[in-house]
Design a protein around this nucleic acid. Structure first.
Lengths: 187, 187, 187, 187
DNA sequence: CGCTAACCGAGACGGTACGTCCCGTCTTTAC
DNA sequence: GTAAAGACGGGACGTACCGTCTCGGTTAGCG
């Protein structure tokens, strides 16, 4: 077993910095995201920041992972598939318009093209998010609640619709439009 | 009639710079887009660049408009709706993986968040592209070839699926997968 | 004799520009002297300016020469030497604190170190100015109004005192102080 | 005692930059004084320069203060007043033609017009230099070695003559001419 | 009195320097 | 020995002028 005890200052700094990074993302958006500003927000020296993360992408990725832990949706507990699908899509639609994700996702789309690390992180992140949707679609198909579609293709179409509305049009999908979208794809 | 004649030097500079700007956008992406680098690429003085555009946003927005010229799609000529839909999606899927769009679109997604000009261009461009698809879906629904879906919602789901595969996964949609996608959404 | 007649447009431009140059010197001082601003003041194109003078120094030198013509002091007409000396020094003291010379002389002192042309102009200009003073001192000495000093050395000391007060102290010589200065040097 | 210790890098940078600034001032004069060039001369990044001084004025003023250190003139030790006056003027005449002052003083005359800081330094510097001369003149007057002149006015005339010859004529005062100047003013 | 040459305003051009900002690295001191 | 502070070199930003240049349009005065 490990005797490695972690310096409490390190813990404190990391947490303060991750929190500050999310604040900064929400407040300034990604393009204006400044490492200096994050350090200042956290009340910490710039060098401390760079000791924990080598560049802005590592910090942003790490900060986003902390958002990931909050389990979105508990294991299946008899919730009807359609309701589950609508819940997941509503959640996705909301995340895409609220800080800090609202300003981060477009940057992430772009950054993934430039950096393999970012790409790996972003694709894995998206995949894990979509897995829950695919599972719910499959359950609905098996239960006969939905048309007999390919669950994976359907979850791509559903997720894609939400992203499309957010990124390529001026009208992000509203919660009230989710049932219509589900009807369109899943019957 | 207008006698307003344009200094040929201006034409030369503008063209070289717009071309260089697209190159830079593709090569460096938007976050790393550098005005200095554009001027160097174009073999033009920095001050010439700033004489024509006040800042990077103006330049990028202007450069993108030059992509707008190629008229796309011929008028409806009795082509069967399903075939037309598949053709449009195949074309979109291909455009998203070939230069120059392959490298520009991700940058555009990001840049649109930062600049109203870029956003206006990008959304209008996307809308005009998708309009053709919506029309084809509607024709198919009316002809009874497709399920009775909302044409607009369906075209968002179809386009969204193509973008999702390109931007959020490591596997862009291949042409062979288009019929499966159409089946999933349109029955 | 020359039949070369000068295009009246040239005359008009030159005069407007020289006038504007003096205005600009007075208003902005030398350090902030801008060729663009001179052209604008004169209501003339920048290229017209550069057609007549190759650079700022030529223009400034030329503008200053126009100040030279106003004859400071008429030929000796029986004016008492002491009065004449005081008049010349009072005039010098005033010129050094009023536009446009006030801002130009310090610049000229400096520029004379950098450019042989400016040096030649400035030294000749100073020498011609001082010649009148030397003559007046000599007349006073010969008339027995002054101590038997070397007229040249005395005029250097007198002029030097006026410049010293203007350039090296915060208190330029006032007219009321001139008689005291003359007493000190000439008795 | 103070424990405030200074980062040796700061000391190194400051010294290199101040030295470079004086070099630049001498070489290029003030009008052509370039911050970029100073940084290059010092072998230091431009941002380091701006970290220590906000603009050229601050740098120039600071650089000049470094010239202030050499204490000049020993206390009165019974030296005859005329000899003392001649010594001071000879020293001034020599300083004005030898580096570093020879190239800096003209620039200073100009710069003092543009910057209150530079002006304050330059005038204080001149005043302290001239004070010694005024004292010597007063001593000579009291001892009856000189004519009964106003010591202050006389020291202005003497110093002014030296500056005049250096800055406004092509013939700086030579040591051999100093006695003649003293005779002219002080009898 | 019409032509042609000069002069004109307008403004684009390549450059250079400004002062500001932030990056990611590196060094020093304090705890 | 590790953390905090912050100096460092680098480089892009957008602005302002520099002195040069190209462009048509107008004006003057000669032929």
């Amino acid at each position: 077993m490990s005797h490695k005890s972690v310096d409490p200052r390190v813990v404190r700094s990391r947490e303060a910095l991750l929190r500050a990074a999310l604040e900064e993302l929400g407040a300034a958006g990604y393009a204006a995201f400044s490492m200096d500003s994050v350090a200042t927000r956290a009340g910490v020296g710039r060098s401390t920041l760079y000791r924990h993360w080598n560049d802005r992408w590592e910090l942003v990725a790490d900060a986003l992972e902390t958002l990931n832990v909050q389990p979105r949706g508990r294991p299946d507990d008899g919730q009807p598939p359609r309701e589950r699908v609508e819940q997941l899509l509503t959640h996705l639609a909301r995340v895409l318009v609220e800080p800090p994700m609202a300003s981060v996702v477009p940057a992430l789309v772009h950054a993934a093209e430039q950096s393999d690390d970012v790409q790996a992180f972003f694709h894995a992140y998206s995949a894990s998010r979509r897995q829950a949707l695919t599972d719910a679609v499959r359950a609905g198909v098996e239960a006969g609640d939905f048309r007999p579609v390919d669950p994976d293709a359907a979850s791509v179409a559903l997720s894609g619709a939400v992203f499309y509305r957010r990124l390529l049009t001026g009208r992000p999908l509203r919660a009230a439009e989710v049932p219509g979208l589900v009807d369109t794809v899943l019957g």
